[in-house]
Design a binder for these strands. Sequence first.
DNA 1: CGTTAGCACTCGAACTTTTTGAGTGCTAAT
DNA 2: ATTAGCACTCAAAAAGTTCGAGTGCTAACG
Lengths: 344, 344
Amino acid sequence: MEDQLSDRSKRILEAVIEDYIATAEPVGSRTLTRSHSLELSPATVRNVMSDLEEMGLLVSPHTSAGRIPTDKAYRLYVNSILEVKKNLPQGNRDEIRRRCRMAGKDLGDVLKETSRLLSSTSSYMGVVMAPRLAANVFHQMEFVKLGSHRILAILVSQNGTVQNRLLEIQEEIPQEELVRMANYLNGMLQGLTIAQVRERLVAEMQSEKVRYDSMMTKALTLSEQTIRSDGAEIFLEGQANILDQPEFCDAGKMREIFRAFEKKSLLLDLLDRSMQAEGVQIFIGAESRLLKMEGMSLVTSTYMTGKDTFGVLGVIGPTRMGYGRVIPIVDYTAKLISRLLETE
Amino acid sequence: MEDQLSDRSKRILEAVIEDYIATAEPVGSRTLTRSHSLELSPATVRNVMSDLEEMGLLVSPHTSAGRIPTDKAYRLYVNSILEVKKNLPQGNRDEIRRRCRMAGKDLGDVLKETSRLLSSTSSYMGVVMAPRLAANVFHQMEFVKLGSHRILAILVSQNGTVQNRLLEIQEEIPQEELVRMANYLNGMLQGLTIAQVRERLVAEMQSEKVRYDSMMTKALTLSEQTIRSDGAEIFLEGQANILDQPEFCDAGKMREIFRAFEKKSLLLDLLDRSMQAEGVQIFIGAESRLLKMEGMSLVTSTYMTGKDTFGVLGVIGPTRMGYGRVIPIVDYTAKLISRLLETE
DNA sequence: CGTTAGCACTCGAACTTTTTGAGTGCTAAT
DNA sequence: ATTAGCACTCAAAAAGTTCGAGTGCTAACG
């Protein structure tokens, strides 16, 4: 399986891929020799392309058309041909920097803006997943009385995430008691991750010493309700950008794509998966069978929001996307955001 | 200008509009007489249609095609022909009811879900604008210390809206002082609208008696920072639905539409405008030149979240939309949401 | 007089046919 | 090993047909 590709074959494959990225049209031997200054005749190129086709790196949509790179080809390209410019063009750099300066906003706003940023600099779709709540570190909890039977619970994590939850309660609880409850909980839960908090609460509720203290019981019940459910948030921006891609210009496909993104669950799975490893990761076409609609790729990177809580951000575009350009953007943005969000 | 339309003309216009709504195709005299049981010959219908065309209620895309209703025709239809079924079909009613039961979520979640709901029951786009912050009634403010130079400010309104803002501060403020500041402010600002709060803060900061109390100054500065900027939130859901509309199936138009909705500012203007009057309002096609892309209409209604704070919700669809069906949906949803959000 | 049947005319949509040209694979010459 | 040359392919664009739902107009009808 270790494709023993000659240097020349690689050069040609690269040329095909780059042409296809640029034009979205099947590329033929002729056009290749013209645009890229390979010192070869069309006929030679044809032979090589024929080999590449045999190896499953190219396909032709029909006999008398040019050829198109397969997912496998992109994989090869990304892994061993493409050399990612370590240095993002200064222009991009500046823009990202500039738009990252956004003090006075909460985490959600920053992430949304980041998603926008990714979308506009890459000209594909930007996606950012907030760190999963469970991994965050508990910082503080507050209960605010809204009415006689409604309490607003506020859960603050150390990285600045804030979760609000409206709780309906049976019996009225006076404000002072709420404060005492919060104090009690804040003392107990300091520094734990939310996941740990959850365990702790369950354990505590079953322990003997709490069972007969109604205040504590109430407090535990309330807080348990507060941290229940961990709907990781996803910010997806720039959907309109993919309408510009010629391969999706037909209405049917577009609909499919939009529908798919409307329920974010599969995207969530995919992003969750890319959180396994650190750094930039690339999912090409059908490799992520989650994005089962064909022709889409995903470039992600993890970012940090604290000691050991991270989220994922990235760019979604057509398989035929400018990896060389996108990868540094994703990488740089992730690093910058990490720095920005670091709770020093 | 008071169109003196004979009863028959009205019936025919209605038939044309309804046919066009159903099929999205220009409708001709023949088809009309067949589908609707008007007791008239095609020729007669033709004559009438010709009149209607003269009055600017119908147009034909070209000589030998059927006719299409103009914006003016829709307006007439909505105002004086269409009789809105006061009673939403029980099915819809039930679904709306069911999905409105969503306790334990904050306002944002509820509104987002409502937008989804509007979108799916109408099969167009649902849109919900959160009440403008300025009109909300202040309830409570909290400061939570996140780090030595970072404070999380939480602003709770009486209707359950929660705003978080991250503040960077120069000099460290101990937690106890933050609590005292919050108490001071909560006492002072109780029951005012945010707009009034803003004024009050400015006034207070200039008053003599505060000027030399650094704690108060700090408190005022902090809170002033917190309520600054009033980015009304808009929840727009179901964009994929409009891809199903045949009139937008061409890629160019779609792109335009998606681009337009990506920056929500014009939508915001429009919704803001529809907040002038209470109850259901209808903007047809170019009437709202804000949605300057043609062929879109908007049905809105205000909803209440408290004594006198309201937001707007509605449905955006093609001008050729089922007004008779959509209007009750919007109306009913608005009422239900108002009831749900009422701070009793 | 309002309504209707009849008729010639229009013109986009859909279907065919033709043309075009970028592409291929093969073979023979360099 | 490379390349020039050639016959062949086939989608896409252009040109040409057919078809039918529409129209407007006129004349007849109750």
